[in-house]
Write a protein that binds this DNA or RNA. Sequence first.
RNA 1: GGAGGGGUACCGAAGUGGCCGUAACGGGGUCGACUCGAAAUCGACUUGGCGGUGCGAGCCGCCACGUGGGUUCGAAUCCCACCCCCUCCGCCA
Length: 425
Amino acid sequence: MLDAKFVRDNIQVVEEALCRRRSKVALDGFVALDRKRRDLVVKAEELRAERNAASEEIGRLRREKKDASSLMEKMKEVGARIKEMEAGLPELEGRMEEAMLSIPNIPDPSVPEGAGEEDNPTVRTWGTPPPFSFPVRDHVDIGADLGILDFERAAKIAGARFCLSMGAGALLERALINFMLDVHTREHGYLEVLPPFMANSASFFGTGQLPKFEEDLFKVAGTDYYLVPTAEVPVTNIVRDEILPGERLPLKMTAYTPCFRAEAGSYGKDVRGMIRQHQFNKVELVKVCRPEESGAELESLTADAEDILKKLGLPYRVVTLCTGDMGFSSAKTYDIEVWVPSQNRYREISSCSNFTDFQARRAKIRFRDSATGKTRLAHTLNGSGLAAGRTVVAVLENFQQADGSVVVPEVLRPYMGGMERITRR
RNA sequence: GGAGGGGUACCGAAGUGGCCGUAACGGGGUCGACUCGAAAUCGACUUGGCGGUGCGAGCCGCCACGUGGGUUCGAAUCCCACCCCCUCCGCCA
């Protein structure tokens, strides 16, 4: 959510930002609506001030055993007028709120303008796609052949877009998760947290998934809970409604969670394999920092995620999402894309975003600036570090051998009981 | 699921219709005094949001006692609904 005051005073800046984002949100009438609301608020406040003064007077008179009935009579009327004033407020405030909640974040000036995915410039590339002297197979075939992935039985248990890993497949994914958490906590200085895998609607409002994107979520029937689509939700909300001591920033947290996504509107997209699932495992990185530092913190967060791919030896590139491709709450996003041999292209494996104060304003995440003693909104960031399911895909496909086996990356071997190669059982 | 207790500031806690919300009392914190320095002691200051006004330090007002409604001239206090926490019982990994 943007600052209503900022929107009011900088309506053209916001309109221009919406235009750059290719967003269709209309700000028509916003200023007039806000004007109307503030007029009402001021009038109601004046009346309340009058009533407060009179009530005090009534109290004084009664203590002195004097008559206050005429004043009380008068205030009865004032009370009615206050009610009248306030009656119109909820509707106006509701419309304001709705307008504010539907405005996306303003893109950082460094974000390139563009319409969609095809306009995302590549920032850097690491490694080279491996050459294969034999026909490349995709992870579904590799996994089935090795007996470690079973999509048919997953469909029996749950349905389409679910995966069942077994044996070395299950071990590989668990090893990846442990490896990622260890690197981030031991080498990158993140605090490991293990949060709830469901969260209440207030948390989802805080990070911006609600109210706009409810159809992407799984709601637990009969409750106020939703399954988390990313650890961003429970982890960022750890500090919701808090004023943090300035010297404790930046907060750096990493969390493993399964992620649940309804994937509404993605019918026919990535239907094969474990690229796009209703449930997948992910290790997330979350930061809460001072506004001055969020730009640099995004760079280091992205580098922390990249480090995992480097250590695994998986080729990747980093792209900047252009204005038309960015998420609703983000001011700047880097996508890290890993090489997927069977598709002969790079696929997203991590998305690292700086939300500036957009989530912090919604979630009321503030800190006390020790220099001024004043409270300020913090900046929040997060990124996948990494999506474990897609990392399994990348490992299986990039390290596949002519004989159908898969070589285990060196750094994972200690996590897999020394296993050097996944072979058919 | 049943029974009971509770949610007030940074923490503990008092307050049960006006004299109580920058909110008693205790603790903590910050600054100052004393001291060679410290401890102890003494003093001052320590919630957040919204709106108006001003170039500004500021000044003025409104709101907030878990949340949302209601009663009343006036609600932390009375009424209704909901949320959360704690204790005991039941069930349970």
